[in-house]
């Protein structure tokens, strides 16, 4: 009987009981420790093998023959041309997509019209189509045998195997980024502030620059950032339309492949390291922007 058990024994049992109860509670609240450790280990090792290791290897290979070899590889005229072309193409396609994305997002978020769902689906098309197909579409349109091929030849306009073709293909592939970043933001903000501005006598243009644009600037920057990263890194579509003319129509990703195929590992990885750095910078900027997007807005209505 309970009455006959000595005090110390009672304390000991109650202590053990409390511990058992705490452990039981712990089990109810979360998964067992073994499961937690297994899952975390799995995630970390996966990330290490598939993300961290390749990134480290890119830089290791780039600097394998020393810093001077790295700099020399980047100073090659071919490398410089590729860097220049990549920057030019990114500038063109980001600008175009900034305008297109803004217009498309505006149409979707602020107007009601039939065919809206279809438009939203169209915006996503470049994400669901293989980049190689995207490139081929432009060959079909502007190639010598393409729909506009004859007309272009007659007027002496070069699109394929030149900057315009590369820019077009890149623009197509990176189209969704800006629109995608803006649509949910603009839908959430609604049209009331614009309506207020108009009723206060502001013109459409003024309303856009003084009310709409400041409200979406962080979202816009976010879209531009991702669009830029993808534009500089695009391989498939650009590879189809570029023609791989050395020193002329090779972008950085294309040059990496060519150099690698020619066993110039240091040069290939030197260029690759630039792209990797772009990725890292993009990642940091993206994190900062996401924080601004979440924290900067007032959600309490």
């Amino acid at each position: 009987m309970a009455m006959q058990i000595s005090d110390s024994a009672m304390l000991a049992t109650s202590g053990a009981k409390a511990r058992a109860r705490a452990a039981a509670l712990e089990n109810i609240r979360t998964e067992p420790a073994a499961v937690r450790i297994a899952i975390i280990t799995l995630a970390v090792s996966f990330l290490t093998i598939f993300v961290v290791l390749p990134l480290v290897l890119v830089f290791a290979q780039a600097f394998s023959k020393g810093f001077m070899a790295y700099v020399t590889a980047l100073a090659e005229p071919e490398a410089l041309a590729a860097i220049k072309l990549t920057l030019l193409v990114a500038a063109i396609s980001v600008t175009l997509n900034l305008v297109f994305g803004l217009v498309a997002a505006w149409a979707v978020a602020k107007f009601e019209f039939s065919g809206k769902t279809f438009l939203i689906t169209l915006i996503d098309l470049p994400f669901s189509v293989s980049p190689v197909i995207s490139g081929l579409v432009f060959v079909l349109l502007f190639g010598a045998q393409g729909y506009f091929g004859g007309w272009l030849r007659d007027h002496d306009i070069q699109i394929l195997f030149a900057v315009p073709g590369i820019a077009l293909a890149t623009t197509f592939v990176t189209f969704p980024f800006v629109a995608r970043a803006l649509i949910p933001l603009m839908q959430e903000q609604g049209t009331q502030e614009e309506e207020a501005a108009i009723s206060l006598g502001a013109s459409g243009l003024r309303t856009f620059f003084r009310v709409t644009l400041p409200n979406i600037k962080w979202g816009l920057l976010y879209g531009v950032l991702l669009c830029n990263a993808r534009a500089m890194g695009e391989f498939g579509a650009v590879s189809v339309v570029s023609g791989h003319i050395r020193g002329e129509t090779n972008t950085m990703p294309l040059l990496v492949e060519i150099l690698y195929d020619e066993y110039q590992f240091v040069a290939a990885f030197a260029i690759a390291s630039l792209l990797a750095m772009l990725a890292l910078i993009t990642l940091v900027a993206k994190t900062i922007l996401e924080r601004r997007l979440d924290g900067g807005e007032d959600r309490d209505h």
Binding site: E193, E195, A196, A197, S199, H301
Partner: peptide, 10 residues
Amino acid sequence: FVFQHYALFR
């Protein structure tokens, strides 16, 4: 015009 949700320029 005064809106239900104020529509102040944030």
